[in-house]
Design a protein around this nucleic acid. Structure first.
Lengths: 338, 338
DNA sequence: ATGAAAGCGCTAACAT
DNA sequence: ATGTTAGCGCTTTCAT
């Protein structure tokens, strides 16, 4: 890297002091128009670019917002990030992005890196492996604003944005019941994640309200993140003769469709399926996948808005938002004309 | 944000000088074991976290790698980013991520922000609107290592990573010809992007080598990024009675499948389809989508490796890599048993 | 084995 | 209207 042009260089070249140059550059009223013009001209010619490092050091904070997600590659998280970037950009912040890879150790490491970089605030969706939240508590104690999204926990009190998991799961299940399904299986997520629990509970509650007994044999846990796992678990579940499957996320649902069809059964005639996602691809499967629509991009925007409000001090109390989900009914779950 | 613990605080508390604390913290051999232990103990207790801002300012560079993509939300780009993060993380770098939103102005803005943050290097896939590359040339003149991926251009000489677009398109088209198709349509991309051009040329060359006349009426440009556009264009193309469609990307291909089927035609019997992507969802469509497999995650890794080699000075010459693509044949393009 | 001093680039009191 | 000074947190010569 070549030597960068600094304010000092400009000052020396123009026979001015660094402070005058600094002021001229930002249009301070005290500086004469003539000086301003000269300084700006040279700055432009030399392609002077302010050093954010120095600026941030001086201001004791950076213009970076830290984003910590399990996996960038997951469509859900990249959608959220997209929403975050949109809002952050508009507010003059940039993103420092880390992925934990669903690993606890890496998450701690990444969190430290964000703190070391003195990010202005942090947006978090923690890893599947994370069972204790001391590292987050420490960040909070430092006074760094932090907002959890999607994956939240009860162990630590933070601002958060989630979707209405219970409600979404409830409506999905109720819908399947209305379609005449009685043996509704559930592909559940990692049990220690609150989102999985809430979705599971929404499922159970819908069964209860409709007087359908809950059968543990119809619930399978898909800890993983591979479609293959949803596929395998579905194959297993089919032994229990379900007439419907409610999957806790997109990947699992897609595995389920394939599995059902590969086993020679029809979707939705033999097994109706509803997923939980926000995915254009859901319209591409045959049959098209019914799903609880998760507003991921929206989630990113809301999370970033809350964070920025806390960074600017505009809001000091913790904020928790629950975004509405709605059920999108497509061919995969329609057994009767409504 | 509360006051952060600094080396100075620790020094004062321990009756030492800042330099001694600094050295103790990093295990300098001159420092006595006893002092090291004391310093480290207090640092740990006070949760001292080095200030990357100060460090970077001193070292004249940050540990950030800038990533500039058109849209984070696109699966292709988030896959690439995932690969980048993997390699960058292992080398001790973090990501500063910007999305241009396919806008030229925003790209310039973002590029400036990256320069201002003194990122150690930049990975770029430029926006669809970008027709001149002066802003990139300037960054290069500053001596900031830069690697272009996927979308490269001829106007400026940089390191780059692309896939073998010509070859991929050639093989896809040849495959369709081998399946007996003769009226092969092409959903092309924005014509000023080199990737689109190369894919188009691979398509044309395959036709030529097989003695099939090129028919301009069978080529449509999908400038956009919406499936809807691929859908609409396909509907139009169907008037020309094609027996196959080669789509320049995933989104367009998916739109094409839907369009063909909605028009009452069968895939692949009436119209065979091959896409260009790296997408798990391609296995979910009915029929499953044949495609030229683009190694996106791999692309991110390779691009990051090249960049880091240039950052560390291990390699000074520009490097250009062309990654192999291979054709994955699935049901959407099989007309005869092979 | 430890300390003092200077400087990375920038800005905001506080002069003048 | 402009300059001087000091300091953000850290490291690194150069002392001692």
């Amino acid at each position: 890297m070549k030597t960068q042009v600094t304010i000092k260089h400009i000052a020396t070249a123009l026979g001015l002091s660094p402070s005058t140059v600094s002021r001229a550059l930002k249009g301070h009223p005290d500086i004469s128009e003539h000086t301003k013009a000269t300084v700006r001209a040279l700055a432009a010619r030399w392609e002077y670019e302010p050093n954010a490092l120095a600026l941030n050091l001086r201001n004791q904070k950076s213009n970076l917002i830290g984003v910590l997600v399990p996996r960038i590659i997951h469509h859900f998280f990249s959608s959220v990030m997209s929403g975050i970037e949109e809002v952050a950009h508009a507010a003059g912040y940039r993103l420092m992005v880390c992925q934990s890879n669903e690993e606890y150790e890496r998450e701690r490491e990444d969190l430290n890196a964000l703190v070391a970089s003195r990010v202005a605030g942090i947006l978090v969706s923690f890893s599947r492996e994370t069972l204790e939240f001391e590292h987050f508590a420490k960040v909070q104690k430092r006074g760094i604003p932090m907002v959890f999204f999607d994956r939240i926990c009860e162990e630590i009190d933070t601002s958060s944005v989630i979707t209405d998991d219970f409600g979404g799961a409830f409506r999905a299940t109720a819908h399947l019941i209305e379609q005449g399904c009685r043996r509704i299986a559930h592909l559940a997520g990692t049990s220690h994640l609150l989102i999985s629990q809430n979705r599971f509970e929404g499922y159970v509650e819908a069964l209860r309200q409709h007087g359908i007994p809950f059968d543990p044999a119809l619930v399978c846990s898909c800890d993983g993140i591979l479609q293959e796992e949803g596929y395998q678990q579905t194959v297993r579940l089919l032994a229990e003769k379900p007439d419907a499957i409610f999957a806790y996320n997109d990947i699992a649902a897609l595995g389920a469709i394939r599995a059902v069809q590969d086993c020679g059964l029809r979707v939705p005639e033999d097994v109706a399926i509803v997923g939980y996602c926000d995915w254009m691809a859901a319209t591409l499967t045959k049959p098209a996948l019914s799903m609880v629509m998760q507003p991921s991009y929206e989630m990113g925007k809301v999370a970033a808005e809350i964070l920025i409000r806390q960074i600017t001090g505009e809001e000091t109390a913790l904020e928790s938002r629950i975004l509405d989900t709605h059920l999108v009914v497509r061919a995969s779950s329609i057994k009767k004309a409504s």
